Amino acid sequence: MITKGQERCLYVFPMPEFQRIAGQLRDQPMTHKAARAYSRVFFASAHDEVPDKQGRVTIPGHLREYAGLSRELVVIGASSRVEIWDKQSWESYLADSEEDFAGIEEGVLPGGM
Rank of each mutant, 00 (worst) to 15 (best):
R56W: 04
R36M: 15
R8V: 02
A37L: 01
V57W: 05
R20N: 05
L109T: 08
I76N: 00
A44R: 12
S79E: 07
S89P: 02
D100T: 15
V82G: 03
F42N: 05
A37Q: 06
L10I: 09
G55W: 11
M15N: 12
V75G: 03
E17S: 12
D86T: 08
A95E: 15
Y66C: 05
Q28K: 14
V74G: 01
A102F: 00
S92P: 04
R71W: 01
G107M: 02
V75H: 06
A46V: 07
G23Q: 10
V108A: 08
A35D: 04
K53H: 08
D86H: 08
A37I: 00
S39F: 02
G61S: 11
I104E: 02
D27W: 02
S45P: 03
F101V: 13
R40T: 06
H62I: 07
R8H: 10
G5S: 03
M30N: 12
V50R: 06
P29N: 15
R26D: 10
V82D: 01
S70V: 02
K4M: 04
R8N: 11
K87G: 06
T31Q: 14
S39M: 06
Q19V: 10
P16R: 09
M113K: 14
M1N: 02
R20P: 02
T3M: 04
L10Q: 08
R64K: 14
P14M: 03
D96Y: 06
P16M: 05
F42S: 02
I104V: 07
G5C: 02
G55I: 13
A78C: 10
R20Y: 03
M1I: 11
C9N: 13
G55C: 10
L109V: 03
L69E: 00
F43P: 01
V12F: 06
L109K: 05
E7W: 04
I2M: 10
T3C: 09
S80F: 00
L94V: 12
E17K: 14
G111H: 10
E65A: 13
A46I: 08
E49V: 14
Y11G: 07
E72Q: 08
R71E: 10
Y38T: 11
K33D: 06
V57T: 08
E91F: 04
E106I: 12
A95K: 15
R64T: 05
S70Q: 08
Q24S: 07
E49W: 08
Y66N: 07
M1Q: 07
V12D: 02
H47I: 06
H32L: 05
Q24T: 05
